[in-house]
Amino acid sequence: MAVYKRSYRGYAGPLTEEWSRFAIIPRYAYRGLFQSKIMTAFFVLCFVAPLVFLFLIYFANSWGRIAAIINERGSASPIGINGEFFIAYLGFQCPLAFILTAFIGPGLISGDLANRALTLYLARPFSRTEYVIGKMSVLLVLLSLITWVPGLILFSVQAALAGGGWLSQNLWIAWGIFAGSWIWILVISLLALALSAWVKWRIAAGALLLAIFFVAAGFGEAINAVLDVRWGKLINLGYVFTIIWHSLFRLRDSFEISPASAWVMLALICGACLALLSRKLRAIEVVR
């Protein structure tokens, strides 16, 4: 019978696995996101830097042949493929990931809260945790695709081209790429979701996210200058991440605050974001 002629009837067919239902949210989100040409173009642009880094790896590993051509036989490659090279890679990709998050993240929850859609989600066999995981995975997947996934591909290419014992000697770099990217992705995703849930307005949430990174950095410097202290740097998130990445990539640069303080700061930010999400994401808002 044609669909338009059917009257109400129950459903007795198969059901999907409960654990897999969080993945419905990113599937629908991507459908909407990639309808935007700007978003699609930006996402494609995010792969330009990995291609450049891939070329640099090829260049560094082919230096012997290139040197022979340009009569520089015996000279060392101007590009060293080491921790600094990959930290520079993260230095390119993570800001792009941040821009992508500022574009996508603020609208993920605010729309649902403003239109009271959360009631509909949570009236189903779908928990708040699954909702947050679903919304976060929209960002986690996209940001992974432009940070650690190409990063590890670059690492693998370097390992294959360098051969010998390079892989075993530099395996910690792979861990640095993976962990450094994930920490960045988790923190900015949580921040974007929490701000989205807090202000319930996409534009304001986006502005707040940018303010947390850029205005807070200036504010931290002001605190240091006025109070003659060093802990003002703790609210400069870019600086905090730099410390953590440097510790992950075993670079011995000196910073004004210790890596332990940086880790504690990130843990506090994540905790605050989770608390805010737990408070704001409710099916029914009780007015006291």
Partner: peptide, 26 residues
């Protein structure tokens, strides 16, 4: 629900399909 409740920037058919899937329908 009593109040307006919908998912922004979505067609009615996508909205109802999304809700059906969240309820466990393939």
């Amino acid at each position: 629900p009593e109040n307006d409740a919908f998912v922004a920037r979505m067609s009615a058919v996508s909205y109802v399909q999304l809700m059906g899937e969240l309820s466990g329908l393939p």
